[in-house]
């Protein structure tokens, strides 16, 4: 029997998700034995035309990482969707928009101007900025178009499953691959990680006081972080209450608060708003002036609460009107 065909692709991402595949270590040999990798730009020399030549639906599963923010990425994911039985959004960027999704605080013009004209280190006397097409002596050269808005994968194509995390941990990847190979998949649209908040499995839960009361917000560099105590109790912004668990608590073990890369649980659409709600109720004062003072010490609430999920949040992006 022919081995099932598998494709990997990357969009707006850092390459960390490709590393995560390599992090399977010896287990990757089992994967390679069981499947036939037909497309993987970072590691194998197959081209777009090879994918185009395949029959529709002939790839068993495509793992796509990265957010979608250019016309090329959109074409590629639409192509892979046509050729694949299953599409798995792999990692935070593809699942929720991720770190590249923070670009939704600006638009294309603002970003291009900053990067090509106004940064202190820019040396661009002719004020050259990228064009989608350019005439040269040898003919027209083209570049993909960058969109104003960064999208998560499911805002562009139909997605069957989600593997959360920045990057997804090896055990979840292996579970997902095994489930696909054995045909033991959960309902379509599932996030392939337990549907419980991180606090549920966090070891620091044992030492957490019954009621969390916060008088001062601290940033990690400002204090010596107690390795046993709940981060919120120490005044540090920890996204644990609003974040899905299953990550293996790598950050917590490293004595750093959760940043929310696994996204919300199934019941929640907008993790930033939910975290805001939970966190604000912990502030230990009823005096309006004091509340304002504490809130002012949170430097960047939108960027912190939506660090990985701005494109998939309710408002999705900043309103650029009047800016």
């Amino acid at each position: 029997m022919a081995k099932p065909k598998v494709a990997f692709y990357w969009c707006a991402s850092c390459g960390g998700c490709e590393e995560a595949v390599i992090d399977l270590a010896e287990d990757i040999l089992k994967v390679v034995e069981a499947v036939d990798i037909v497309f993987w730009p970072v590691a194998l020399d197959f081209k777009r035309k090879d994918v185009e030549a395949m029959e529709d639906g002939s790839i068993a599963v495509s793992f796509i990482n990265g957010a979608v923010r250019t016309s090329e990425q959109q074409e590629m994911v639409e192509l892979l969707r046509r050729k694949s039985g299953l599409v798995v959004a792999f990692g935070s960027c593809s699942h929720l928009g991720g770190i590249p999704g923070l670009a939704n605080f600006w638009d294309r013009n603002a970003i291009v101007n900053r990067a090509y004209l106004t940064t202190p280190s820019t040396d661009n006397p002719d004020k050259v900025i990228p064009q989608v097409s350019y005439e040269t002596e040898v003919g027209e050269l083209t570049l993909p178009e960058i969109y104003d808005t960064v999208n998560s994968l499911d805002q562009v194509i139909d997605v069957d499953y989600y593997l959360p995390g920045c990057a997804p941990p090896p055990d979840l990847i292996m579970n997902a691959v095994t489930a696909i190979l054995e045909g033991k998949l959960p309902p379509k649209g599932s996030v392939l990680s337990p549907n419980k908040s991180l606090c549920d499995t966090c070891k620091r839960n044992e030492t957490k006081p019954e009621k969390l009361l916060i008088k001062e917000i601290k940033r990690p560099y400002e204090i010596l972080i107690d390795p046993e105590k709940c981060f919120l109790e120490q005044g540090l912004l920890c996204m644990g209450p609003a974040t899905r668990g299953g990550c293996g608590e790598r950050c917590i073990e490293g004595n750093m608060p959760c940043r929310g890369c696994f996204g919300p649980t199934d019941q929640v659409k907008d993790m930033g708003a939910k975290f805001l709600s939970a966190f604000a109720s912990m502030l230990d004062t009823n005096d309006e002036e004091e509340i304002k003072r504490i809130v002012d010490t949170i430097v960047d609430p939108a960027g912190t609460f939506y660090r990985f999920s701005l494109p998939s949040s309710i408002l999705k992006r900043r309103n650029m009107k009047g800016i």
Binding site: L276, A280, S281, N286, I291
Partner: peptide, 29 residues
């Protein structure tokens, strides 16, 4: 303030409101 039927629901509203105002301003509202 002080009149909440549930003791301090309106105080929770003040805390959320102040943080939420800051958040929507960052999103251009």
């Amino acid at each position: 303030p002080g009149d909440c039927h549930y003791q301090e629901g309106n105080y929770k509203a003040v805390r959320r409101y102040n943080l939420l105002v800051k958040l929507i301003e960052q999103l251009g509202i």
